[in-house]
Write a protein that binds this DNA or RNA. Structure first.
Lengths: 150, 150
DNA sequence: ACACAACTGCCAGTCGCTTGCAATTGGCTA
DNA sequence: TAGCCAATTGCAAGCGACTGGCAGTTGTGT
């Protein structure tokens, strides 16, 4: 599950930003919680709960519980790129949406405003306010759509 | 997991169409297989494997295996509307894409050509050939987006 | 430095499948 | 129309991704 480099702003500039956001919401900063935040920050993109757990040698349970809590409080969001576990990422001012290519298993992030034309088309045509933050857009990338050897 | 009524053509007109397609591909028609097809046909929309199994009093294993085989041969496809099990539906000449509202848990089918403008926009802008056949488009419907009581 | 809710690890359980295996069966063939 | 055999089935077990209960530990306001 690799991500193309992000040229635009990260959700939070520093871990302290995230911790501050956490504090503002009256949440505690336990050791585990801090480590989870650090892992999310270090990942610079969506990462599986189990990955965080194994990297930090934490029990998965606590990681899930922290992610769930952080998500409930809007600091984190999970996305599904394809089959497989949900992937978690920090949320901040700059939100992301994803386009995932099942061919090569890679995803790229997209600044939401770039999808606004799509959103407004669907809104007008069908009345739905769609977002690609929970399920990625799924489609073949240029490389995978091109027949091999050409 | 309810679906808005489909006004357009069903994937196959009759079960026999599906059985014929199956035969053309050299597949056997076991009792279980026929029952699964009938269930898919009767459902008139995406249905969970476990639902089929319990309705038909079949073991889930066989249902999964049949669905997987039918999917491999292009007679069936599964879609994810939200969290929860994958939902299976017959595929035929008229393919569907889905828009799912997590607010009310309902989905509507969309004829693919109605999403062509979206597809071509994304193709031009990002180079991806997207389809909404595996993950549904997710967004609030008009009713759920409207603040209650207004 | 205390009190106590929040949080943790551990363990067991659930959901949605998937796999291995031995018994059965659909469908071509003699 | 009986026989053959790969395809298919049911059963049991296993697996990945979580979820929930509980008793012990820890952050934090006072």
């Amino acid at each position: 599950m690799t991500l193309a480099p992000q040229t635009h702003r990260l959700p939070f500039e520093t871990i302290d930003d995230a911790i501050e956001a956490l504090r503002r919401r009256g949440l505690r900063l336990s050791m585990t919680r801090q480590l989870v935040l650090e892992a999310l920050f270090a990942a610079r993109g969506p990462i599986a709960a189990e990955d965080i757990a194994s990297r930090l040698r934490l029990v998965a349970t606590s990681v899930y519980r922290n992610l769930e809590l952080l998500e409930r409080h809007g600091l984190v969001r999970h996305v599904h790129l394809g089959h497989g576990p949900g992937l978690y990422a920090l949320v901040g001012h700059g939100e992301h949406e994803y386009i995932y290519c099942p061919g090569c298993g890679t995803a790229r992030t997209v600044r939401p405003e770039l999808l606004d034309p799509v959103r407004s088309h669907i809104k007008k045509r069908f009345g739905y306010e769609v977002r690609f933050t929970h399920f990625a857009l799924v489609g073949q990338c240029l490389r995978c759509a091109t027949p091999a050897g050409t």
